[in-house]
Design a protein around this nucleic acid. Structure first.
Lengths: 347, 347
DNA sequence: CTGAAAGCGCTAACAA
DNA sequence: TTGTTAGCGCTTTCAG
């Protein structure tokens, strides 16, 4: 079974290999009679064509490469789920690449396209450099960015400036004046959302006539634990903030833990707002900014599929909105309220 | 660039294609001098070999197929992350297949192997039928099961009977006698863990001299919301249980919601124990049975890689232990305690 | 150590 | 309509 080729089928059906190939590819130029013969030969032999050979001869891989950084990041996973949901019902196979290390990044982004492993590429939360983009062009492979931006590439992204603004505004409306922002490193060239949300944060502050305080903006590695530490230093400030806007829900969780460890109630003593609206945010009732994670993957995959059919002259852009989800980790400034407390996170 | 072939390189280096191929494959039978020439030609031309051609000629795909059901299930995702972590540093590409529908299941399991897309297959939480296994054998492709069992296939699995026993025993030790089990459908032929945990549940009950009560075992679709409904029917029983063992943490969360909606405190009025120890369980402080999700993926991928190198006569088995993680959703029977309450899930 | 040539299994152009 | 044949780009004998 393993070694049945198109030739075996041809022989058994008493036709030429070309005809078998035509049947395989649903060419209309085959009489029903022969098509029948070939079909039954195929079934009798339990034959299925070797994709490698097909790929080689037509120069298409029928696969889409999806590149993600830090596959453990819940929001990346959520986007990927969106991608998978559309690709798994398409005719394309999905090849997954995970880029954990920064130096891996450059290497992979360069080699993956030129390896001609895929007919299209989807980058999730990964901003390519100009050199990378050049490679894509050289390899002549369609690329779509999800949650990342490059002027030359089609992308689906979320309005992060707006989201940062909404989060901060929400806190301001609640009466807070001392509002911190904890985030990933701002100077990471491949992470523009950090900067965008920061921009929104400062916009809201400025609009409300609140001076930006440098000590209220702390950066660190992404993750719960680093965020916890960041929040502790915030809380240890001589004049600590009364509210914190966390770059992600994951970091918001770390912030909540820190508050708890410091004996502070959330939101009674400290208001915390996250970003993303991952599942855990719902369970934990964290106030957050919703971005359409899953949908961004769906749209991205859809866009890529389109582009592969009919290439567009101009890069396309799909912009997804953000929305405040008001839950239980933010409260009016100065108003102690114990009921909303995150007891689940307390010892 | 896109069209540079091994022949171009050969020409430029002034050698034959065979030699270039040898260099590409690190054959020792090349003099340093020529190797140098070829190397620089490769770099000058920015050449990289076409994998489809390579695959065709050596009959290997250098890819591993990973098949998962319901990619949205958090524990499946966690296992997959383990798989990715090892595969992404291996020389194999990872082709991901998601099987959402049951009828998709049969189709895919049959066609994927014979498509010769991958040199090895990893099934996560998916039990193949005998017919599937036959196909694997026919295609002569190594397969490893993660969180699934078939006598003819290598696998890494968790001791679910033990886990079910531990969970139930924990509840019994706490003084509970009326213990429910909510789970996925028991008769799903492809989900043996449900049955295994059920076995453990009954064992613990029997050992403690507690009669098994049919009305205390409710089955439904997997997921938070179905579990919520199940728990409500449990709670509406004339003689409701005082503790529930949920097949998964996801379902435990649904159970907690139901308790909250019924005005019951957890664990004061109702003890709830989950299974898996997904991330959310930690945030929510849910008592649960830990199974090494990520690790199971790592081991599975490792095992497959081994098997591909050196096929084993006998199917291999790696058994991972379970462990009780005592958190805040279970308590001594009859002892009202409000402190551990899951306030985060309350209105 | 190296070049030439025969495939790997399939598609597509060309005849018939 | 159908059969035949020339590649697709690479690996791998087989000579030399």
């Amino acid at each position: 079974m393993s070694k049945t080729t198109i030739r075996d089928v041809a022989k058994r059906a008493g036709v030429g290999v070309g005809t078998v190939s035509r049947v395989l590819n649903n060419s209309p130029a085959v009489s029903d009679a022969t098509r029948q013969k070939v079909q039954s030969a195929i079934e009798a032999l339990n034959f299925s064509p070797n994709p490698a050979a097909r790929r080689l001869s037509q120069g298409k891989t029928m696969a889409i490469g999806v590149i993600v950084p830090f596959f453990t990041n819940p929001s990346v996973v959520r986007r990927l789920q969106g991608v998978v949901s559309v690709l798994s019902v398409s005719k394309y196979d999905l090849i997954l690449f995970d880029i954990e290390k920064v130096n891996q990044r450059d290497m992979s982004l360069r080699t993956i396209p030129q390896r001609k492993l895929a007919d299209g590429l989807l980058l999730i939360s990964l901003t390519p450099s100009d050199i990378d983009v050049e490679q894509f062009a050289l390899a002549n492979i369609p690329v779509v960015l999800v949650d990342a931006y490059h002027p030359a590439l089609s992308r689906v992204l979320v309005n992060n400036v707006q989201g940062g603004y909404q989060a901060t505004k929400h806190l301001i409306d609640l009466g807070h004046r001392k509002i911190a922002y904890i985030s990933d490193y701002l100077d990471d060239p491949f992470n523009s959302p950090v900067r965008d949300r920061f921009t929104g944060y400062k916009q809201a502050l400025a609009e409300a006539g609140i001076a930006y305080r440098e000590e209220y903006h702390l950066q660190g590695e992404h993750g719960r634990s680093p965020a916890r530490h960041l929040t502790h230093t915030l809380l240890d400030l001589p004049d600590p903030p009364t509210a914190v806007f966390a770059y992600s829900d994951t970091q918001a969780i770390g912030a909540i833990e820190a508050a708890r460890e410091s004996g502070l109630s959330v939101p009674g003593d400290l208001s915390i707002i996250g970003f993303d609206n991952i599942e855990a945010a719902e369970y934990l009732r964290i106030t957050t900014i919703r971005q359409a994670l899953f949908e961004s993957g769906v749209k991205g995959a859809g866009l890529l599929l389109n582009l592969m059919e009919t290439p567009a002259a101009e890069p396309q852009e799909i912009l997804l909105p953000t929305k405040l989800i008001d839950r239980h980790t933010t409260a009016q400034y100065g108003k102690k309220q114990l009921s909303g407390q995150i007891a689940a996170l307390q010892t």
